[in-house]
Amino acid sequence: MGLLDAGITKHNMLVTSVDNVLNWARLSSLWPMGFGLACCAIEMMATNASNYDLERFGIFPRSSPRQSDLMIVAGTVTMKMAERVVRLYEQMPEPRYVLSMGSCSNCGGPYWEHGYHVLKGVDRIIPVDVYVPGCPPRPESLIGGLMKIQELIRMEQIGISRADALKKLAEKSVDPRIIIERERTVVGA
């Protein structure tokens, strides 16, 4: 449960756990690194711009990796770029999150077979928390992915590892296949 959902009494006092406060602060000011690689970067820009306005979620791109908590790998990572991506990742302060945006950075995308110079999945070089599918993903899906990162932060506690937080998130979330199947039967009928 989020901090704001708990409700604030009229005495302006709130009793909550340290984890909740820290998580609330971190997830409400998620600063991604302004780091565009390819086509997806344009959709990321569109998400930042007027119509989708990411700033309403407290998400505001920073130019330097040292000021950011989230890396959106937006586009194709090539062999020449791979080492730079790793270095940028290492320059980010902990705790850091990685969102892989688009098919290319998920698995190589349309270049998986003949793209000799394309890295087939950014998870070969850095750990990825959330994958957003699409070529390129719509701004809505990117926002969905960012919400997922926020949920992951909400699962975190002092003393538990990222892997455990991801496990907790997986337990809590609904399997999308059930919903898709249900929608399909409704449409089919």
């Binding site: 690689l37 194709t76 090539t78 020449k80 349309p110 003949h114 793209g115 000799y116």
Partner: peptide, 14 residues
């Protein structure tokens, strides 16, 4: 070359 995605190689194979 940081975004060299092998367009020409892909074309020869499809």
């Amino acid at each position: 070359g940081y975004l060299h995605r092998c367009f020409e190689k892909c074309c020869e194979n499809v």
